[in-house]
């Protein structure tokens, strides 16, 4: 085995992969959230459609999209592999576990939260990404992306699903954000409190903004 594969398949290396891909997904969330928040201008989706149009045709964005998808896939596959191998490290389980005495429930449930997110993502990507990239519904001018959103969120089922997705995202981030820094070795009495605060703020704010979108559209606040 070369030293690169040896490192990346070690317990520390696999964690590093989770941290680096996780942080790049966090960076993506900022962009995604900023663009979608344009709908709150309530200008009939005008600004939002323009931003979406730019994202769809900018070469740099299209190249980053490939990287993003690769990062997402690696994060999912590596996460599932870690979950499986970690689970095998205690073949006989305890009869009584008092997890709440030493850790938060969401830090112990990253696999579950991640799986919920994955289910949400499949539906979400089907709703918007597949429609805008792989059909001519939007590029052909039949509908704008904003109209597509309005249609999807007219139905209460996706709204509920999206809110649950955002809630899973919030808890996933609440642990994942600061955890990524710890894994990369960034733990320092001066900076760690800052990272933790930033992480908590981010984990609440971003999913809150995202969750507000389907709700606001469903209730007709944004048209």
């Amino acid at each position: 085995m070369s030293w690169v594969t040896k490192t990346l398949t070690s317990s520390l290396g696999r964690k590093l992969i989770m941290a680096v891909t996780g942080l790049s997904l966090i960076a993506f969330l900022v962009v995604h959230c900023a663009i979608n928040a344009c709908i709150f201008l309530n200008d009939g989706g005008h600004t939002f459609n323009e931003a979406a149009e730019f994202m769809a045709h900018n070469l740099f964005i299209r190249i980053s999209e490939v990287g993003l998808m690769a990062g997402l896939l690696i994060h999912i596959v590596d996460g599932l592999m870690l979950w499986k191998s970690n689970n095998e490290k205690r073949p006989v389980k305890y009869a009584v576990v008092k997890g709440e005495a030493n850790s938060t429930w969401y830090s112990r449930s990253m696999g579950l939260l991640g799986s919920l997110l994955l289910i949400f993502l499949v539906v979400h990507l089907r709703h918007f990404w597949v429609v805008s990239r792989f059909t001519d519904v939007i590029s052909g001018g039949q509908k704008t992306l904003f109209q597509e959103m309005v249609e999807v969120f007219a139905n209460p089922i996706p709204v509920v699903l999206y809110v649950v997705g955002c809630l899973s995202l919030a808890y996933h981030l609440l642990h994942g954000f600061q955890s990524a820094f710890q894994t990369m070795g960034w733990n320092h009495p001066k900076y760690t409190p800052f990272v933790k605060c930033l992480g908590a703020g981010f984990s609440i704010l971003i999913p809150l903004i995202f969750a507000a979108m389907p709700i606001a559209m469903h209730l007709g606040w944004i048209k």
């Binding site: 070690s10 317990s11 520390l12 696999r14 964690k15 870690l82 191998s85 970690n86 490290k89 205690r90 997890g99 005495a101 030493n102 850790s103 938060t104 830090s107 112990r108 990253m110 642990h175 600061q178 955890s179 710890q182 894994t183």
Partner: peptide
């Protein structure tokens, strides 16, 4: 670290349970 992996211990997910206990 290599020995730790060979012995069959799991990978840290930063729950902090170890530090607390």
């Amino acid at each position: 670290v290599a020995q730790m992996d060979t012995e069959g211990f799991g990978a840290c997910t930063n729950t902090g349970a170890c530090e607390a206990e």
